[in-house]
Each structure stands twice: as structure tokens, then as C-alpha cells.
């Protein structure tokens, strides 16, 4: 599914967070959003599945306008999965209940079917023994994977991933990233915000550098990450390299 954002503006009170964002993601593409903390990556991801009401601009899925009035946001969200920066699993539900809530309540899939599918996915993600566990009994990496499975279990056509590796130790980062890579090869359209430049270089078809609510530079990873043309991008990457997040 193709995602198009045009001229997106969003303010929180007087804080003008998104200042006219244009972004097109083709079907089966993986786009990485990079940029300094607070530049609006998470907010932008949330506008795609209509969790943030935008002040101006358009969001289209396969050419269909979804940001206007009269659109059933709930049915749009069933086609777009999102994994939040802080997982946001439901603490009062087992992993299985977390996973099946959406399919059962929003899509009306019968419980046995939803559970079978969830268990199958959990096993593939190495969480087969955590089906009945509660989120606070899982490690950070396991919670992260459970959140990814929750976003996948409804068969979304687009997957939005927000800094899914930021809270993980390096060993787990590899594990989660290989999962994402596999999803990419299976042709899922993905938009992800990340601070992992190495990962962005590996998995992305396109890298978008944002700063202060604007897209500064976008292009293939090799170009944006190795030969950025904008001074602001160069400056950002230099600091990232110093921070050890990208090896040249």
C-alpha cells in the first residue's frame, strides 16, 4: 500500500511541531526517518494512522484521502500497524490477550482463529513460551517483540515502527532488526523512525532526514548517510558518528 503525506502541519498548542512535511512511501518500500530528538519523527508516524489530528495537509493511502472528515479512522487503523517507542502493551492483559484484542474487538475475527494466529506468530518470534505471561514479566526485548507481533497480527498493509531498538541491549537489537529485515523482504510497506544509522543503511530503500519539523534531505541511504548535501545533515551525522551510532 502506498502512503502519501502532503503539506502536513501539526501544532501542540503554540509548539509548531510539523511544518509542512511531504513524504511519499511506495508499496513495499522501507523508509527510515532520522533526525535529532524532538524533530517530530514520532508525531509524524502517528499522523499516518490518524492518531494525531493534523492542522493542515493531506494523508492518502493508495491515493485515497483519509485525513478528511467522514473517514472511518478505526478501519484505516486496522490496515496500518504501529509499534510505539515505549511499546504500550496493556499491563493488565496476558501477551495473548494483548495480541487478540484488536482482531477480536475491532475486526470481529472469532476468538479461536485469532488466538491460533497469535500463537503461531509468537512462536515464530521466539515467544512461544510467553503466551500466557503478563508484560511486566517479560524482558525489554521480549516486550518489544510482543509489541511488534501485536502490530502484525491484524495483517496490516503498512507497518510503522518508532525507535523500536532504542531500549534494547546490542544483542537484542540484532535480533529485532533481523525480524524487521525479514518483514521487509516479504514486501511489507514500512516507515520507521530510528537512531540506528547502521540499520537504516541496511534495511531502508530511502532515508529521510528531518530537523525541526521539516524534511531537510531525503534519498537512498548511501547518498543521505555517506554523501549528504545539506550542511544540517552533515552536522547531524558527524555527531552521530562521534556518538558511535554509525561506523563509516
Amino acid at each position: 500500500m502506498k502512503v502519501e503525506l502532503t503539506g502536513i502541519h501539526k501544532s501542540f498548542g503554540t509548539n509548531h511541531v510539523l511544518k509542512g512535511i511531504d513524504l511519499a512511501v511506495d508499496e513495499h518500500q522501507v523508509v527510515c526517518l532520522i533526525g535529532p530528538s524532538g524533530c517530530g519523527k514520532s508525531t509524524l508516524l502517528r499522523t499516518i494512522n490518524l492518531l494525531e489530528k493534523i492542522d493542515e495537509g493531506e494523508v492518502r493511502l493508495d491515493g485515497l484521502l483519509i485525513s478528511g472528515a467522514g473517514v472511518d479512522a478505526n478501519s484505516v487503523r486496522q490496515r496500518i500497524g504501529i509499534v510505539f517507542q515505549s511499546y504500550n502493551l496493556f499491563p493488565h492483559m496476558s501477551v495473548l490477550k494483548n495480541l487478540t484484542l484488536g482482531p477480536i474487538k475491532a475486526s470481529g475475527i472469532p476468538r479461536p482463529e485469532a488466538e491460533a494466529k497469535a500463537i503461531d506468530l509468537l512462536e515464530r518470534f521466539g515467544l512461544g513460551d510467553k503466551v500466557q505471561e503478563y508484560p511486566d514479566r517479560l524482558s525489554g526485548g521480549q516486550q518489544q517483540r510482543a509489541a511488534i507481533v501485536r502490530a502484525l497480527v491484524g495483517d496490516p498493509e503498512v507497518l510503522l515502527l518508532d525507535e523500536i531498538t532504542s531500549a534494547l541491549d546490542p544483542e537484542l537489537v540484532g535480533e529485532v532488526l533481523s525480524v524487521i529485515r525479514e518483514l521487509a523482504t516479504r514486501g511489507l510497506t514500512m516507515v520507521l523512525a530510528t537512531h540506528e544509522m547502521g540499520f537504516a543503511r541496511d534495511v531502508a530503500n530511502r532515508v529521510v532526514f528531518m530537523d525541526a519539523g521539516r524534511v531537510v534531505e531525503a534519498g537512498p541511504p548511501d547518498q543521505v548517510l555517506r554523501k549528504p548535501t545539506q550542511a544540517r545533515t552533515q552536522q547531524f551525522l558527524k555527531r552521530v558518528i562521534q556518538g558511535g551510532r554509525l561506523s563509516q
Binding site: 502517528r46 492518531l51 478505526n74 486496522q78 504500550n88 496493556f90 484484542l101 474487538k105 475491532a106
Partner: peptide, 27 residues
Amino acid sequence: SQRLSAASLGLTQFQALRYAVLPQAIR
């Protein structure tokens, strides 16, 4: 974020309250 999380699964506002928020709130 719990409400947001429920909404992201395609739940209506009422369902989000009912299944995600209220059980925690009542406790």
C-alpha cells in the same frame, strides 16, 4: 498512551475505554 495504543489497533473510543483503560482505572 494506553488509549492511543488501543486506538492504533482499530478499537473505537468506547472499546478503548472499556478494554484498555477502565480495568486499570478501576484498580
